[in-house]
Amino acid sequence: MRVLQLIDSLEAGGAERMAVTLANTLSETIERSYLCATRQEGLLKTSLKPEVSYVFLNKRRKIDMSAIFKLYSYIKKEQIDIIHAHSTSFFMTTLMKWIRPNLKIVWHDHYGNSSYLEKRQYGVLKFCSGYFSLILSVNSVLESWAKHHLKCPEVIYLPNFAVQDRDTLPVTHLKGQSGKRVLCLANLRPQKDHQTLINAFRIVHDDYPEWTLHCVGQDFKDRYSKSIYALVEELGLNDHIYFYGSCPDTDHVIQQADIGVLSSASEGLPLALLEYGLGSLPVVATDVGDCNSALPKACHDFLVAPAEPQLMAERLKVLMGDAAQRNQLSDLMFQHVTAHFSAVAVTDKLKVLYSQL
């Protein structure tokens, strides 16, 4: 079995990290594992294992004949059986299916705005879905949506999973006082609603001024990120909230933190929560998408409504003021994630699905 993971970029987003993780994990158990980035390389390229064959298309426009021919030639040369396309890379995959009809196409839906599916533009996706053999959805809402709106007859819920990368060199050192750090793993995008988190931290700061917030994720240097920095400045929190951009050593970053937080307005099944769990962090998160499935029931008191900074602040203060409870919940998070979102369980299921194609 020869499987190519197809993704638009290798920047450190959730879909991108999942594509790399799948390529790496599958390289241990199938004949050949491949990964193709269509538009842009990025930080995650260094995370690919040597066993994964890699190709970059440098695609510049929607119909880029040079990129199309390069991918077609690569698929033909390597005799690839299955293209596993992630998120917006489905159009290029459909073109390959037209050229090589025997290819099997799997499309992986990581759509983060699953709370706002009524606004999703999906005309081209609906047309292309008629060429898919299988759709994988990262949460139950997306699974139901695909069954009702797309043409592919086979739709399966497949949860995300996280793995720890012990081989990456530790290069990121968090500021602030050890034992009093809150970590947010999220790219600076509106969906992640950093405003709610920052406003919550302003409330927290009055009672716990020694605690600091550390935001790790790609900065797109757009209007949204500028508004975030302006809010931190306005609230006088420059010495208590720190931004690091994308970091290659996520595991090392998590090891330096004491609480994980996610303030998203909408989610699928966020990889960040699974990484917090593997890193034994207690979590405060918004109750959106399938976030509740990433936390054991004993931790559900720490799920709050989105866009409610006061509620988020109250939950954060509970954990900040009780080290024993932090330790207890961190153990529960680790046990839950390793039991339900392990790489072995998910990739074994995926290989069965591949073989059935």
Score class of each variant (00 low, 15 high):
residue 183 L to N: 06
residue 184 C to G: 10
residue 185 L to V: 09
residue 185 L to F: 01
residue 185 L to E: 04
residue 186 A to D: 04
residue 186 A to Q: 06
residue 187 N to G: 14
residue 190 P to L: 11
residue 192 K to P: 00
residue 192 K to C: 12
residue 194 H to S: 06
residue 194 H to E: 11
residue 195 Q to L: 12
residue 196 T to C: 15
residue 197 L to D: 05
residue 199 N to L: 14
residue 200 A to Y: 00
residue 200 A to E: 13
residue 201 F to G: 05
residue 202 R to H: 13
residue 202 R to I: 00
residue 203 I to Y: 09
residue 203 I to W: 00
residue 205 H to K: 12
residue 205 H to R: 10
residue 205 H to T: 07
residue 207 D to G: 12
residue 209 P to G: 09
residue 212 T to E: 11
residue 212 T to M: 04
residue 212 T to K: 07
residue 213 L to P: 02
residue 215 C to Y: 01
residue 215 C to L: 15
residue 217 G to W: 02
residue 217 G to S: 05
residue 217 G to T: 03
residue 218 Q to R: 15
residue 218 Q to D: 11
residue 219 D to I: 05
residue 220 F to C: 08
residue 221 K to A: 06
residue 222 D to Y: 09
residue 222 D to T: 06
residue 222 D to S: 06
residue 225 S to I: 06
residue 226 K to R: 15
residue 228 I to H: 02
residue 229 Y to A: 02
residue 229 Y to Q: 07
residue 230 A to I: 01
residue 232 V to L: 10
residue 233 E to I: 07
residue 234 E to T: 10
residue 234 E to Q: 14
residue 234 E to H: 13
residue 235 L to A: 05
residue 235 L to N: 00
residue 236 G to T: 10
residue 237 L to P: 08
residue 238 N to F: 03
residue 239 D to A: 08
residue 239 D to E: 15
residue 241 I to K: 08
residue 243 F to N: 06
residue 244 Y to T: 03
residue 244 Y to V: 04
residue 245 G to R: 09
residue 245 G to T: 09
residue 245 G to H: 11
residue 246 S to L: 09
residue 246 S to Y: 12
residue 247 C to I: 00
residue 248 P to N: 13
residue 248 P to T: 01
residue 249 D to L: 00
residue 249 D to E: 14
residue 251 D to R: 03
residue 256 Q to D: 10
residue 257 A to G: 11
residue 258 D to C: 01
residue 260 G to E: 01
residue 262 L to K: 07
residue 263 S to A: 15
residue 264 S to D: 03
residue 264 S to F: 01
residue 265 A to R: 14
residue 265 A to V: 05
residue 266 S to L: 06
residue 266 S to F: 04
residue 267 E to I: 13
residue 268 G to W: 09
residue 268 G to N: 12
residue 270 P to F: 03
residue 276 Y to K: 05
residue 277 G to S: 13
residue 278 L to D: 05
residue 278 L to R: 15
residue 279 G to C: 10
residue 280 S to F: 02
residue 280 S to P: 01
residue 281 L to G: 05
residue 281 L to I: 04
residue 282 P to D: 07
residue 282 P to C: 10
residue 283 V to R: 08
residue 284 V to I: 06
residue 285 A to I: 12
residue 286 T to I: 05
residue 288 V to T: 04
residue 290 D to V: 00
residue 290 D to P: 00
